[in-house]
Design a protein around this nucleic acid. Sequence first.
DNA 1: ACGACGGCTATACGCGCGTATAGTCTGCTG
DNA 2: CAGCAGACTATACGCGCGTATAGCCGTCGT
Lengths: 225, 225
Amino acid sequence: MATPPGPDPEDLTARARIRDAALRHFGEDGFEKATIRGIARTAGVSPGLVRHHFGSKQALREACDEHLMKMIRRLNDQVRADTTLSDVSYVGAARAAMAPYQLYLARSLADGSAASIFDEMTRICEEWIAGADPGRPDPPDVPARIRAAVFTAMALGIPVLAPHISRAMGVDMFSPEGDLLLSRALVDLYSHPLMTPEDAARARAGLDRLAGARPPGRRTEENSP
Amino acid sequence: MATPPGPDPEDLTARARIRDAALRHFGEDGFEKATIRGIARTAGVSPGLVRHHFGSKQALREACDEHLMKMIRRLNDQVRADTTLSDVSYVGAARAAMAPYQLYLARSLADGSAASIFDEMTRICEEWIAGADPGRPDPPDVPARIRAAVFTAMALGIPVLAPHISRAMGVDMFSPEGDLLLSRALVDLYSHPLMTPEDAARARAGLDRLAGARPPGRRTEENSP
DNA sequence: ACGACGGCTATACGCGCGTATAGTCTGCTG
DNA sequence: CAGCAGACTATACGCGCGTATAGCCGTCGT
């Protein structure tokens, strides 16, 4: 059952403490609002040491991205390697391990950085989608990669907009109750197609019609906002 | 067919120019990174005038929120009032009117502000969902409001994470080609449920099982990231 | 034993920001 | 015409930031 991924060995070093503090500050306050001084205070070191180890604020951010990326890959590999895929408790543990980074991840994605992380998630999602395609009666008319990217963005919309969802639900999205409620809502949404095949055919026809000569610069319909 | 909502009357005032410049700067650079001086330069006024009209940077942001909200409501009302709901060109015009605000909206939502805008969108989405509920064979076990909030977050994930989607597609999401491709991907995703009814039932059962006594603080499964 | 080295701190610099204040110009009102 | 109000500008202040530099101190190789 593999070791639940605890903190890295030798993760008591000042460098690691700074990186962890940066992940928290960047996540909670955003990159611009977070300060090296604040990060240093949280890490229990002097501001100068931050520069000594990472060179600049931007480089510190990149080190955070890199570390997070390593975490994600490690978790994904472990889940993949685990033969008992339905092991719920393990998935739970993996998600719990990700929890401290959710805020940072959400902010990184939202401000356009963390590109490689989004791409990695898209890649994972693509494998998943491509695996399901052969079972479909109708051949998809959009590459799996693109469908994966769109779906990844939608799925990530949930943690990115977590405060709004929590407000609507009345409970914190990351609390056990909130998680349960969110899961139920997702099961409901995922199991009811938003468009019937007829709707889809009609929409596709409309898009095909517009795909011919049309005045550029005008939008069409669908894809909500 | 109502008048296509052009700029407000008397929108040549310095106050309006400042507001528009702020919407652009906040959208492109983010609230923290944007500067009053830069906004003033774009608006062609002195930085002092910004303060004279709006009092503070934060108040300027709130004025932007208010203005955007007014726009959204106006557009929604016009679409509602229009009897020929399938008037594609009109929807296109409305979306084009929103285009300049998309970046601002995305950033506002992502940093937790713009709560009332998210709530308004959730409300609109809820009406839409609640209207479709009676036709369902199975009764939903989650309030429409909450399903609406979750779906709204997912839908908004697309503009919020637009740079990533554009990168994956290889074309700008807001270009005509990108819009077409995105629309096709959405039609595909929306018309294929991600879970079969059996999957859903199994997932619901799993959630019910976990809803009993369970160690708090641990997450469960599903709801992707 | 000792010097070099690297983790670490103290202190300072300079810049650009939001904000404050005083003042100018214009147009309206009595 | 007097005078006032409000749109608008010029200038400045002070703060907190990222960054730079100089030096301290424990450790380790030789």
